[in-house]
Design a protein around this nucleic acid. Structure first.
Lengths: 248, 248
DNA sequence: GTCGGTACACTGGTCAGACCAGTAGCCTGC
DNA sequence: GCAGGCTACTGGTCTGACCAGTGTACCGAC
């Protein structure tokens, strides 16, 4: 018989638990309101500071939002990737996760999204992708910011076609963190125009593969494009972590 | 000229900002201590409740830990994937993520982890995997709980070999949520022993592929195993979402 | 001398009560 | 009918208090 270490359970933790439970179980839906702090305080039988600490925790997790003066009380929010983004960003800044790992993860996610997109795409999806590619083409002459926006839009369409919210959100978060990590280096890139052209060509190729329902091809092209664009920012010693993903 | 909407900045948010800044900038290293709440209160010039709400937020983000009675004050923690784990878990449990999506995501993650493991494994890793497989073999006769634990351990070794914390954490979370969703159905499975045998055979095959550095083979086996084991719980109409991932 | 126990000063956790600025909705006076 | 203010609330903050728990320094027994 072995005993487990025990940790004292704080009052505010129990409050968090109960409210969280109500939210994940669906008893409280997004948009609905929690009772006011003073009301919660009597319902839970604790002081207001305890209630407030619990609400702070839930607020930090993006589960609720409260606004002073609103007589309807704190609002329950829909699940959002903001908290995920924050924690991943923190991890990335703490050196536990380097650019190599992020890029590796992104190659996996992006590759899979493209594979699924190629297999599941409808005609309407293809039209959407054509439009997105066209915006990118226009973006080349309109400057980097515009092009970048169109690029993001293209990736979002791909992600949407793959029809997996987890994939979409994870990819979004990882893409954001990667860009934050190297944005200063991208700022100073000299040959932006030629870079955009290459990028555009990559996307056109990918689109062709998706059109012909060639999942493996689309996935490989997507991963290769990421590698070509970003590998230079990864320390040379870590690049072997990425190459296994490129084998056909 | 357009103006941006402004949001009032709460006092506790500024406190969070300052402490967070000190941690990410490295001015406060893991293991070091923050001043006591009463001391922080005079340093920041705010009330104790404000300090406490700030500390709660930082604690929820796994950046600090405080213990009553410790005269050294709150401890600064090393960045850990725990916060990432929590936020991803919340997202995965959101109602618009069904078993099909979870399984799809898990096939992607598991497949990639196996691929990387096959390419990056060292001799020591192989010994570890052999040991894990052996535990599973013993687990068959020791009952389902024991077997299940050994199975989890095997997957953890695989994930570790792939050397990507993001992959490890994501897989862990998704595996957990999948099990939560179907554990009641697994409880009542009639032919557990034969199920365990099949599972074991699957793992042995995977290990062979990893040993011979056959990344694609290992990935395919892993995905196939997941499909074989769990697809029956996915509504038949959604199974086509999974099959594209199985093509060689 | 070493070892055990104890007292003390301090920690975080919690509560009560107060005040403020802000909001929403009613309600009055035109 | 409508613009104005009034009111009853909201959350944000502060003060001050008490408690249970902890670490340490001190001190006495051996």
């Amino acid at each position: 018989m072995r005993f487990e270490p025990v940790a004292p359970v704080r009052a505010y933790e129990r409050v968090v638990e109960q409210i969280e439970q109500a939210v994940v179980s669906g008893a409280l839906k997004p948009g609905e309101r929690l009772p006011s702090e003073r009301e919660l305080m009597t319902q839970f039988g604790v002081g207001r500071s305890t209630v407030r600490e619990a609400l702070r925790v839930l607020q930090a997790a993006e589960m609720i939002r409260s606004r002073p003066g609103d007589p309807r009380g704190p609002e329950v929010l829909a699940a959002s990737p903001a908290a995920l983004h924050r924690s991943m960003h923190r991890l990335a800044r703490a050196d536990h996760v380097g650019l190599a790992e992020l890029l590796q993860f992104r190659m996996i996610l992006d590759g899979s999204a493209h594979l699924l997109a190629a297999e599941l795409r409808t005609e309407a999806d293809l039209t959407g992708l054509d439009a997105a590619l066209e915006s990118m083409r226009e973006g080349v002459s309109r400057g980097y910011a515009e092009f970048s926006r169109a690029d993001v839009a293209f990736h979002e369409v791909i992600a949407r076609i793959s029809r997996n919210p987890l994939l979409v959100v994870s990819e979004e978060v990882v893409r954001g963190v990667v860009l934050e990590l190297i944005e200063d280096k991208l700022e100073h890139a000299s040959n932006r125009t030629s870079l955009m052209r290459t990028w555009l060509a990559h996307h056109a190729e990918v689109l062709d593969a998706i059109r012909s329902a060639d999942g493996a091809g689309a996935a490989h092209l997507a991963k290769q494009a990421l590698y070509d664009n970003y590998a230079e920012y990864v320390p040379a010693g870590q690049r072997p972590l990425l190459t296994p993903l490129l084998r056909p």
